[in-house]
Design a binder for these strands. Structure first.
Lengths: 144, 144
DNA sequence: GCTTGACCTTCCCATGATGGGAAGGATTAG
DNA sequence: CTAATCCTTCCCATCATGGGAAGGTCAAGC
């Protein structure tokens, strides 16, 4: 089947299929005489695998490993779990940061709502309360 | 002061300062005869504002609006809150998606640990429950 | 003075994953 | 046969950030 059909069958766009092939995530597809790529059901199955892994937020490199394990009869579940756990940790860390930002911003919005002050706490906080000193007097700066 | 000093004083890298100027987020800095950019404490203050907004996950475009409101004496807190709330919603949505992915993956890892089955549920799920591995039984492709 | 090293300038390239679109060839339906 | 639709490759853009090269400037030491 053509790339367009493989795309709609797998849920991966034709653009992405070509991209995955280009970066070596997928083997180069067979070509017809015309130069058109040709896919079979196994290819579509693999594309679906990739799409579901992407839906779970796995990176391309992680999917590369998962694909290798997928087709490795002698794989160990521990290997797969290791990749999944690494990804889980990354996502949990990301979620923590996000929650921190949300909490901070919620607090700011809340105090901006309550106080009918002219000075909005959101703006005040971002402005760090005063014209910045030239020297990093506050040690909380991170190195550039 | 030079861009490097403004960078360490504000916590925004020199690269980013130039970038922000280039995209018009910040006004073009004064130049000395040498061509060096020249910053004063107000510039550093503004840079700090931008950095703190970035730390809260605001996009460049949102910061553009916040900056305008910051220097607008006649701003309304409601305008600021609107931007903050929009951003808050985006982050909350992002957090929900992330939590979904985490929960799904945690469940998969959990079931992969409990069952000592040869077939890892993670791989099975990604393979859409079809038998699968079907390691390149068909050696019709060159290895990736 | 002059040298040296740190700093600045602009410009180009890369990331990660995705999409848009152009130019041109292939296939297919009518 | 023709027109529409598909395919090909190639280039560009995103978003925010960094790396690095080539070359100019500044400040400190001798």
């Amino acid at each position: 089947m053509n790339i367009g059909q493989a795309a709609s069958a797998s849920g991966v766009s034709a653009k992405m299929i070509r991209y995955y092939e280009q970066i070596g995530l997928l083997p180069a597809a067979d070509r017809r005489d015309s130069g058109y790529r040709d896919y079979d059901t196994e290819d579509v199955h693999r594309l679906g695998f990739v799409r579901r892994a992407r839906d779970l937020g796995f990176s391309i490199e992680q999917i590369r490993s998962l694909l290798a394990l997928w087709s490795d009869a002698g794989r160990s579940n521990a290997d797969v779990r290791a990749i999944a756990r690494t990804h889980l940790k990354e996502m949990e860390e990301q979620a923590r940061k996000l929650q921190d930002m949300i909490a901070t911003l919620q607090a700011l919005v809340g105090s901006c709502e309550k106080g009918a002050r002219a000075t909005c706490p959101i703006i005040e906080e971002l402005g760090d309360h005063h014209p910045a000193p030239a020297a990093p007097t506050k040690a909380r700066r991170r190195a550039a």
